[in-house]
């Protein structure tokens, strides 16, 4: 599926819930089912700074796509990462770099993006885009076309 299609799917899922607590119940459930990062990547080198909770994010490049895995010590953060992974993992660097982030606003997670709140959704998105840029540059240097 394309990034925009998954984003629309996520937005639709959240639109079923009016109350914030219900939305967070969904995020908590998502947090519990986050595909776990390999323990060997849970080091400071993969730690995203700027979050109130710890977030480790790992990316690898496989057949033109970026595969993301992550973990956090907070469950809500894990739930948010799970949404991001569902949207951005298994996509090409090019598509990730050009992805529109309106979905965050639409599901009401905008407050998590605010740079003044140190809970790091913005840091996570930034890191994913940085990985995409790094892989894109590397592949171009090697003469591949993503």
């Amino acid at each position: 599926m394309k990034i925009e299609e998954i984003e629309e799917e996520v937005v639709n899922e959240f639109s079923a819930y009016e109350d914030w607590l219900d939305k967070y119940n969904v995020i908590i459930e998502m947090g519990k089912s986050l595909p776990m990062i390999d323990e060997k990547y849970k080091t400071d080198a993969f730690l995203i700074t700027g979050c109130q909770s710890k977030v480790w994010l790992h990316a690898e490049y496989l057949d033109g796509k970026i595969i993301l895995t992550a973990d956090s010590d907070a469950i809500i953060t894990k739930g948010i990462i799970n949404i991001l992974i569902r949207i951005f993992s298994n996509q090409s660097p090019e598509d990730i770099l050009h992805a529109n982030l309106d979905f965050i606003d639409k599901i009401g997670l905008k407050e998590h993006l605010s740079p003044t709140r140190n809970n790091g959704l913005s840091s996570m998105v930034k890191q994913i885009k940085l990985y995409a840029l790094a892989f894109k540059t590397k592949m171009e240097q090697q003469g591949y076309v993503g």
Partner: peptide, 13 residues
């Protein structure tokens, strides 16, 4: 429970 998790829910209440 991580304080960030608890604080987020308490805020929503």
């Amino acid at each position: 429970i991580h304080p960030f998790d608890a604080g987020t829910i308490i805020d929503k209440m």
